[in-house]
């Protein structure tokens, strides 16, 4: 797990993480910024997405939305790209895709690998905290079994490398709501 350790240990823990390369940066943004993002997200229109793979609420792309420009600027900064390179060994470009997601009771996202042309790293910025009882964990799979559960912690940024191994899901919400900003960094 990625905490306030050295860059070298970040990279080691990301690249050697099981079941596939992932990391979590706690307190990615100060609390007031997270509250601001959550409040902005709650103003956005969400639409219900329902298919064989998921039931969840989603916004459109937020990249051009001024309410999220601080986050976008951070993600597109040279410093962030360098940090990602040092952390993951993966070179990312300025291209990102960002959207808001909201999971309510019974909402879920079944296992899939996220692979689509150009996607290098998937990220989730958790805007609220959920307990094990409430559900909503990011679940990482290995050989048809959940190998790691990451529960939403307000202000944490979860990242994982997109590959044929990156099979993951979002656990069903049993109570409460799960608010997050989600997307991908591209190569």
């Amino acid at each position: 797990m990625l905490m306030a350790a050295s860059k070298t240990s970040h990279r080691v823990s990301f690249t050697t993480a099981k079941p596939f390369p992932y990391g979590v940066i706690s307190n990615f943004l100060p609390k007031d910024k997270i509250h601001q993002l959550l409040s902005s997200l709650k103003q956005e229109p969400f639409s219900l997405k329902d298919s064989d793979l998921f039931t969840l609420w989603q916004t459109g792309e937020l990249k051009e939305n001024p309410a999220f420009s601080l986050l976008i600027e951070k993600f597109q900064s040279k410093e962030w790209k360098q940090q990602i390179l040092e952390m993951t060994g993966i070179k990312i470009s300025s291209k990102i895709y960002l959207f808001g997601s909201l999971y309510r009771k019974t909402n879920h996202l079944l296992p899939h690998d996220d692979r689509l042309e150009g996607r290098k790293i998937a990220f989730i910025l958790f805007l609220n905290t959920l307990s094990e009882k409430e559900g909503g964990a990011l679940q990482l799979f290995q050989r048809n079994k959940v190998a790691k559960k990451i529960y939403p912690q307000q202000g944490s940024l979860a990242l994982f490398e997109v590959s044929e191994k990156s099979i993951h899901s979002i656990e069903e919400i049993h109570s409460g709501e799960r608010w997050a900003l989600t997307g991908w960094f591209y190569g």
Binding site: D52, T106, H108, L110, E172, H174
Partner: peptide, 9 residues
């Protein structure tokens, strides 16, 4: 075809 996820309800 598919069968929708059976949820906690």
């Amino acid at each position: 075809w598919y069968v929708k996820y059976v949820n906690c309800l």
